[in-house]
Design a protein around this nucleic acid. Structure first.
Length: 880
RNA sequence: GGGAGCUUAGCUCAGCUGGUUCAGAGCACCUGCCUUACAAGCAGGGGGUCACUGGUUCGAACCCAGUAGCUCCCACCA
């Protein structure tokens, strides 16, 4: 018992975490190298924003990855988990711009080079914090492989791919209506725009007819854009307005004349049925303008203020102008009325600014051909999504995919390798030198000084879509050992929000550049929400700091807490209670360890209770089989819960109670060794979820050599025949124990009071194995296989067997209560018997039901009959 | 406007091809216990018309139809 006292009553994780993580790194357990003796298992991290800090979403996502990786590593795979970060151009640039502004520096005042210098400084200072945080969580990534999407090699890959796609004719440059973010001052792809319904006002504005015959009333939510109007349009079949088509009207306040045209796009029933056409600031109007050859008047500057083309309100912000122009229109008598309406507004995913549809010259990637193999791969399950319901979503998106706007008007990112010539033409090449060669084909006199590189950078996702290939240098050196061995990767764990941003595009790139899928499985996590169901976010301030949680509950506690209830694809309603439960679980394991460590072993003692050992062996194998099945189906939470119950209920609550020596006594060596082996196996099974405590215990369970670690120990395999009959009999024995305990409880009798048990059964042999256990757990002084009816006897039934305990019958109110309970049960059981009888008397049932179903029904019948007899005699005893 | 999914205990979810003794788990709840591994614990217990309405079937939480509510995705009616 001496050692027991040395171990604290609770597990303190902080020290173990620090100690073992350092040990793992020192021993290079996470390093992966091509190894033909082993099968590779590869995961690439969804690279977090380089300037980001760990949030709950990362915690969930990376815990899952680590669980997958650690399990495979223990199964003998060559595991490679590639970590890294993403340069996140808009988000990072916005942060740097804001930071500079605080210092009084405007981005505009800086050259590109000077700005980038600031950005890199900042990246060096704050970048990668998040990776350090992942280490605290226990993540077993191969840190030597850490990549950054803007590091030179990955940038080379991006440039190479751009040039290649351009040369293949997939990339083009053109004027298109794009989503303009006036805060970020850049174009965005359709995927970066979030649509939200917003309350707005619909303004009815009168445009005077030039012939003086009155006015035409249009309805708009955007009165500030009237200065950009090119026409007023009505539906050609709208008889209210046919007489006006071909006439002209003037824009209020501005006085410019515009034509009244007819187009079937205009609907009769919205507003007045008259539409103001603003080709520069609305995609529909743009198309309408193209059809009718209307002029495009772009009145918005890049920052969302009105430019000189607006003539009025120049230099003011679009929203300020909206307010003012409504006042001015009203004052001048042009405003007919205004009414409330709802409209869908686009917001920038990154800056939150209201998106402005804006015509601009951008670079696009044609998606139609490229996306086909990627669609096919998922539809045919060559790449599996988990849960599979996301397949539908994926299909719809891929079938309707539009060209990808890949240019961004930013500096932080990969600059587009297009070089403009003095004559306005351009060439695309990886470097200025190569571009010059191309340019000189046109005019041999060109020099480098004549080339001007495109100012724009590429969309961040244009680098991250190459991630599974670029992290293994698959572009620069497509035949290198790493990529040949580790690619395609196996599992990708990510959030459904970026299924299109990222996952679909990686699949596209995978087929285009490797002719192969980039990964086999995509596990989609849910969103971590707070108790009220709100998404956890920094702005709401409802997200706990993950590092605080780790400090409070231990990394193991937080990891298990996050996974207790997060099936794939489901949101996780986070509650700190979950982490508490995780910590309690660690503590439970710790105390089982304390118990076993404290045993004195006496080799001279005969082996006690073989049946307990045999039972737990069967139980462990059954659970392990179940756990591995869950893993195969990516049911990470279910696997955890099965393990939790195996350890807590089966091992601690039942098994250890069965085998633990009485106070002051020693354990026999058979039991001790079996128990220690079981415990070791349990630690191996639990390790992927709880790396730290399992290592701590594993190291102390027996002598280990320096350099040994549970990380690289073999994961147990379910073995031996699963003895169903024994497991069933054990369940019955446990149930009998519970019944006896309940009986004691009900009588207010102390557990220390030993009782006698009589069992009436047709199969005493089946119970013989369990008498020792039952005696110990239910404190029985004797067990007899006999019937003991009569007064002062209590009884209960399990299946076809009846159990009797000679104790005084309850009196008074207790007797009444028990009587009522028995009668209720009797009534129910009789009804149940009736229904089974009816079922069995039904010819259609006996003819159609499968034999095993029939057999089960017959067994129910026999059991119910026996139970009724027991209840009847119990009732008779009580009444006697 | 189009599409997908969901609705099972107070909460979060399981429930595989319809058929084990009234439908399961974890948490929460109630009762009794500081019993030398663990009160971050132990023992026991209560709790559900499987959203609603019909249908198919010997048999439905599960299959079909409809209804209601919720969620998400996509979509350029100003």
């Amino acid at each position: 018992m001496s050692e027991l006292n040395l171990l604290p009553k609770t597990f303190s994780p902080a020290e173990a975490e620090q100690k073992w993580y350092a040990y793992w790194l020192a021993n290079d357990f996470f390093a992966a190298k091509p190894n033909t003796e082993k099968i590779p298992y590869t995961v690439v991290i969804p690279p977090p924003n380089v300037t980001g800090v760990l949030h709950m979403g990362h915690m969930l996502n990376n815990t899952i990855q680590d669980v997958l990786i650690r399990r495979k590593r223990m199964q003998g795979f060559e595991c490679c988990w590639v970590p890294g970060t993403d340069h996140a151009s808009i988000a990072t640039e916005a942060k740097v711009v804001a930071l500079l502004k605080e210092k009084g520096i405007e981005k505009k005042s800086l050259t590109r080079e000077a700005f980038l210098e600031h950005a890199w400084d900042w990246k060096e200072k704050y970048g990668g914090i998040i990776l350090e945080q992942l280490k605290k969580l226990g993540c077993s990534a191969d840190w030597a492989r850490t990549r950054f999407t803007m590091e030179p090699k990955l940038t080379d890959a991006v440039i190479k791919v751009f040039v290649d796609l351009y040369n293949k004719g997939h990339i083009y440059r053109g004027i298109r209506m794009v989503n303009w973010d006036p805060a970020g001052r850049t174009a965005l792809s359709d995927e970066e725009v979030l649509h939200k319904e917003a309350q707005s006002k619909l303004y009815y504005i009168n445009y005077p007819l030039t012939d003086g015959s009155g006015h035409i009333t249009i309805a708009t939510t955007r009165p500030e854009t009237i200065m950009a109007d090119s026409a007023v349009a009505v539906n050609p079949n709208d008889t209210r307005y046919t007489h006006l088509v071909g006439k002209k009207c003037t824009i209020p306040l501005l006085g410019r004349e515009i034509p009244i045209i007819a187009d079937s796009y205009v609907s009769f029933d919205f507003g007045t049925g008259c539409l103001k056409v603003t080709p520069a600031h609305d995609i529909n109007d743009y198309e309408l303008g193209v059809r009718h050859r209307l002029p495009v008047i772009d009145i918005l500057a890049d920052d969302g203020t009105l430019n000189e083309k607006a003539v009025l309100y120049v230099g003011q912000d679009r929203f300020a102008v909206r307010k003012q122009i409504v006042k001015d229109l009203a004052a001048a008598g042009f405003l007919e009325k205004e009414e409330d309406t709802k409209s869908n507004l686009g917001y920038s995913e990154r800056t939150g600014a209201v998106i402005e549809p804006k015509l601009s010259l951008q670079w696009f990637l044609k998606m139609e051909d490229l996306s086909k193999p990627a669609l096919e791969a998922v539809m045919s399950d060559e790449i599996q999504l988990h849960p599979a319901r996301f397949k539908n979503l994926y299909r719809v998106w891929m079938e309707n995919v539009r060209d990808w706007c890949i240019s961004r008007q930013l500096w932080w990112g990969q600059q587009i390798p297009a070089f403009y010539l003095p004559n306005g033409a351009f060439v695309v090449a990886e470097t200025a030198e190569k571009a010059l060669v191309l340019a000189q084909a046109e005019n041999p006199d060109y020099t480098l000084a004549d080339l001007k590189q495109d100012d724009d950078v590429l969309d961040t996702w244009f680098s991250s879509w190459l991630w599974p290939i670029s992290v293994f240098d698959g572009f620069e050196n497509p035949e290198n050992e790493d990529i040949k061995y580790f690619y395609p990767t196996d599992d990708l764990v990510t959030a459904p929000e970026i299924l299109f941003f990222w996952v679909a595009r990686m699949i596209i790139a995978g087929y285009e550049y490797r002719g192969e899928r980039p990964f086999k499985n995509v596990y989609l996590t849910g969103i971590v929400r707070d108790k009220q169901g709100r998404k956890m976010s920094k702005s709401l301030g409802n997200s706990p700091d993950p590092l605080d949680l780790i400090a409070k509950y231990g990394a193991d506690g937080v990891r298990t807490g996050m996974l207790f209830s997060s099936p794939a694809g489901n949101d996780l309603p986070f509650d700190e209670k979950l982490c508490e439960q995780g910590r309690n679980f660690s503590n439970k394991i710790w105390n089982a360890f304390r118990l076993i460590q404290g045993w004195q072993v006496d080799d001279a003692l005969p082996a006690a209770n073989h049946s307990a050992v045999r039972w737990f062996e069967a139980r462990l194998n059954a659970s392990l089989t179940e756990i591995e099945e869950h893993f195969e189906k990516f049911r990470i939470s279910d696997a955890l819960l099965t393990m939790y119950k195996l350890i807590w209920d089966d091992f601690c609550a039942w098994y250890l109670e069965m085998v633990k020596p009485a106070f002051g006594q020693s354990a026999d060596s058979f039991t001790y060794n079996a128990t220690r082996d079981f415990f070791e196996k349990l630690m191996l099974i639990a390790h992927p979820y709880m790396p730290f405590i399992t290592e701590e215990i594993w190291q102390n369970l027996r002598q280990r050599k320096d350099g040994d670690s549970i990380c690289v120990a073999a994961r147990p395999v379910a073995e031996g025949t699963q003895n169903e009959a024994m497991l069933k009999q054990a369940e019955l024995a446990f149930e009998a124990v519970a019944q006896i305990r309940n009986l004691r409880n009900g009588m207010g009798m102390s557990p220390k009071n030993a009782l006698s048990l009589y069992i009436k059964t047709a199969d005493a042999a089946a119970w013989a194995d369990w008498t020792e256990t039952m005696s110990k757990l239910a404190n029985l002084e004797s067990i007899s296989f006999a019937e003991l009816p009569g007064a002062n006897t209590r009884s209960f039934a399990l299946k076809a067997d009846t159990f009797f305990i000679p104790v005084a019958a309850p009196a008074g109110a207790d007797a009444e209560k028990e009587l009522a309970e028995i009668e209720k049960e009797l009534e129910y059981t009789r009804g149940f018997l009736d229904s089974v009888n009816k079922k069995l008397a039904n010819e259609k049932f006996t003819a159609n039901a499968k034999p095993e179903v029939l057999e089960r029904e017959r067994a129910k019948l026999a059991d119910a009959e026996s139970k009724i007899k027991t209840l009847e005699s119990a009732l008779a005893n009580l009444k006697a």
